Amino acid sequence: MGRKLLWALLVAGLGLTSGARADDYPTHPITIIVPFAAGGPSDAMARVLAERMRISLGQPLVVENVTGAGGSIGVARAVQSPPDGYTISFGHLGTHVANGAVYKLKYDLVADIEPVVLLPSNPMIVVSKNAVPATSLKELIEWLKSRPSPPTAGTAGAGSGSHIAGVYFESVSGIKLQYVPYRGTAPALNDLIAGQIDLIVDQTSNSIAQVRAGTIRAYAITDSKRLASAPGIPTAEEAGLKGFNMTLWSGLWVPKGTPKEIVAKLNAAAVEALNDPAVRKQLEGQGLEMTPKDQLTPEALGARQKAEIAKWWPIIKAANIKVD
């Protein structure tokens, strides 16, 4: 009887300690691990959110870029961190869905992390170096098919959003590409501007500024409607390529076991940031589509992730995209 009472008191004490930590959270800076290079679309979104979430949480949010293996190294770093709310995993369709079908991960993309919030989505855009003679998507496909060897396409690594989008582009257009992996689409874009590679099926937010500057050429976006921020770029459907629809959504996760109260605080801070007119203007200016307000919940992100795993894993495996 004495042992049972002692155990009950110990459990109750641990519960009170955990609750106190959750009530006091955060007491020091929080790290957001972005699994791609600085300067890319994921990094840009994370930094905008981090700056605004700092106001709500009262502590700095520091972005740490941990690159490699299509983002799986950065995600692993976050998954293996203490479940105390001080390490957040930033990711998207590539890192938190596709990588499970591409890499032999040492973590489970669903069981080992807790969803926090579904972030704005990013339609993909087909862009090429200016030396490519095509001026329309139809002409681009004809030019790609006419090459004696497969044209080069930059990606952020095997299984990344840009790689999956490229494979998808191949399947619906009948072209063949030679993929060049980078540690993020920011360095890939630099090489595209320099003419070192032929094209990228990129996140719109990464390429749109260079399209506007005239340093690269855009052909179509993979959304069902034109972007308000770039109305002159047609959808793939309008450009004559049916079935080429893909949106790269993003999200925030924390390690499994993070107290629900802390997850709720992080969600509230992120939602407050996303509802801030200044933040919305910044993100929409990058070509991002804001998340509907009724989808700004941990449950919505969890449901989206599971649905996308069911959709994309068979496609990825059929294309034999894998890295040991």
Rank of each mutant, 00 (worst) to 15 (best):
E170F: 04
V201W: 00
K260T: 03
D84N: 11
I32F: 05
A188C: 15
F244V: 02
S56A: 12
L49T: 12
G100P: 02
G287A: 06
A318T: 08
A131P: 02
L118Y: 03
Q196D: 12
D23K: 13
E170I: 02
N267D: 03
T222C: 07
A76Y: 00
T87P: 07
P234Q: 05
M246N: 11
G13H: 09
G251M: 05
L189G: 11
G243C: 07
A319S: 10
R280Q: 12
A188S: 15
G240V: 06
F244W: 01
P187A: 13
G287D: 01
L6I: 14
V79D: 05
D198A: 09
A22R: 13
F90P: 07
P123I: 04
M1I: 15
S224K: 11
S162K: 01
G13M: 07
A101L: 01
G74Q: 02
I30A: 09
E284C: 07
V263N: 04
A76T: 01
E170T: 05
L119F: 04
T135H: 06
A209F: 07
G214V: 11
G243H: 01
A158D: 08
Q295F: 06
L57Y: 05
D43N: 10
S72W: 00
V110Q: 04
V34P: 05
G184P: 10
I233H: 02
G40W: 01
A44K: 15
I193N: 11
G13I: 10
L119A: 09
A22E: 14
K104P: 07
A37C: 10
A134K: 06
A264R: 03
M1R: 15
R212M: 14
I309G: 02
L49F: 10
I309T: 04
M53I: 14
P29N: 13
S18R: 12
V279H: 04
R3H: 14
D84W: 03
R3S: 13
P259F: 01
G13N: 10
G240F: 02
I233F: 01
F90G: 05
K317T: 12
R54G: 09
H28F: 07
S128L: 09
R54I: 07
T155K: 11
